[in-house]
């Protein structure tokens, strides 16, 4: 029995031609499966790159649209979504007092306005494309429960691609954190944990298994 691999249809065919050993059959199948995996990986990577590129293009285009509006209006919209000023400031890369000045009507630089427009555009993209209803809440939630990394932190550090990957669900939460901070499991393995104490307030204690 001999195995052939049809690349055009990516289907493994088997045909009976002789009676080779079981080892030969097994080896041929293994090679074919390996090739298939390689092709699938290439296809996956190409698809991932294409999806990421088009997402960033879409986001850039939405940012340009938002950039036509007044800085005050952009900030008001972000605040209305439920973001804290400190989180907006962090993601835009400025201070809270700078945001307060712009809200009062002082002019922001083009670069800062573009960053604010970019954040609002990202929120709209995530809401509309990935059906995230409460986008500010989504940004504040840890990517993996029990670990403190949030989309706010990833966005603030400039890892927008990972933020969109997380929103789209095309990468698992663990894959997203692997891409952001490979040592996240050990880095955030504190012996301390927070619990609600008898007086009703949150307290810190030693984590028990």
């Amino acid at each position: 029995m001999e195995t052939s691999y049809d690349e055009s249809s990516t289907v493994v065919h088997r045909a009976v031609r002789s009676e080779p050993s079981q080892t030969r059959l097994s080896s041929d199948l293994m090679n074919a499966a390996g090739d298939l995996r390689g092709q699938a990986r290439t296809l996956h990577n190409e698809g991932q790159d294409l999806h990421r590129d088009t997402t960033i293009q879409n986001w850039t285009s939405l940012t340009s649209e938002q950039g036509k509006r007044r800085t005050q209006d952009l900030l008001d919209d972000l605040h209305e979504l439920g973001f804290a000023w400190r989180d907006i400031a962090r993601m835009v890369g400025v201070t809270v007092p700078a945001l307060q000045k712009w809200r009062r009507g002082q002019r922001s630089s083009g670069e800062n306005k573009s960053a604010i427009a970019g954040l609002l555009a990202a929120c709209h993209l995530i809401q509309e494309r990935y059906l995230v209803k409460e986008v500010a809440s989504w940004f504040e939630m840890p990517v993996v429960l029990g670990y403190p990394v949030t989309p706010i932190e990833m966005y603030a550090k400039g890892d927008r691609v990972l933020v969109f990957d997380h929103a789209s669900g095309h990468a698992s939460p663990e894959e997203v954190l692997d891409g952001y901070e490979p040592d996240w499991r050990s880095r955030y393995s504190s012996p301390y944990a927070v619990y609600r104490a008898e007086d009703g307030h949150l307290s810190i204690g030693i984590e028990t298994v």
């Binding site: 605040h79 209305e80 979504l81 439920g82 973001f83 804290a84 409460e134 500010a136 809440s137 504040e140 939630m141 840890p142 949030t150 949150l202």
Partner: peptide, 11 residues
């Protein structure tokens, strides 16, 4: 105190 509910209280 809850990250999921915080933004709702702000709104």
């Amino acid at each position: 105190e809850d990250a999921q509910q915080r933004s709702g209280v702000r709104r």
